[in-house]
């Protein structure tokens, strides 16, 4: 079965709710590390991680540069930095915005795809632009697995729709089923 090295999630408009539903469905012993980009305002403070901490059974961390990637943790891209994945640790960058966004979903997805290759699982949720679609393409190119929220159930359908239009998607699921599906993937990977 597919080993899961990392799960990367991207979302913008409607993402706070979507992330809380998805993370809330994961049990506290859910091993694979999760890294998420939610488009955030440049000066946004601690409110996003604080909110998600109330919904997730896993610890939620705003990433510092060079932080080690550990199992059973949810990592968030900090405001106004790109979040990049190196095998085993995170990198931050202040490079220009991609798709008008910093943090950018494409930047996270592409770096995770290169670092974890077939062990990378990408999840694209609700959002109002096309950030993330190119990242999904890269994940597929490296042999990873890609899940997109069903645009019909998404608060803002543009982002998942552009993912479906651009990349070869493995699963299209309504929001409520994504968390349970990740648990299923993980359980299979252990057998």
């Amino acid at each position: 079965m597919r080993q899961i090295g990392i799960i990367v999630i991207g979302t913008s408009l409607g993402g706070m709710h979507a992330l809380s539903v998805l993370l809330g469905a994961l049990p506290p012993d859910f091993d694979p590390p999760i890294a998420a980009v939610q488009h955030r305002y440049r000066f946004s403070n601690e409110s996003l991680p604080a909110y998600l901490r109330t919904k997730s059974k896993l610890p939620v961390v705003d990433v510092d540069d060079k932080l080690f990637i550990r199992p059973r943790h949810v990592y968030l891209a900090p405001a106004d930095y790109h979040l990049l994945v190196e095998r085993g640790s995170f990198d931050l960058s202040k490079d220009p915005a991609v798709k008008y966004s910093r943090p950018s979903i494409d930047v996270l997805f592409e770096s995770a795809a290169d670092a974890y290759r077939a062990q990378c699982v990408g999840v694209l949720l609700t959002g109002s632009n096309d950030d993330g679609a190119q990242g999904l393409v890269r994940i597929k190119k490296q042999g990873g697995f890609v899940i997109v929220e069903d645009p019909a159930s998404a608060e803002a359908p543009e982002m998942p729709q552009s993912g479906i239009d651009t990349a070869q998607v493995d699963r299209i699921l309504p929001l409520e089923r994504i968390g349970p599906y990740l648990v299923e993937l993980w359980r299979q990977s252990r057998t």
């Binding site: 990049l84 994945v85 190196e86 990198d91 960058s93 490079d95 930047v107 592409e110 770096s111 290169d114 670092a115």
Partner: peptide, 9 residues
């Protein structure tokens, strides 16, 4: 230099 950013640049 750190690889992921180098690669992008």
């Amino acid at each position: 230099y750190s690889l992921p950013s180098m690669r992008r640049r």
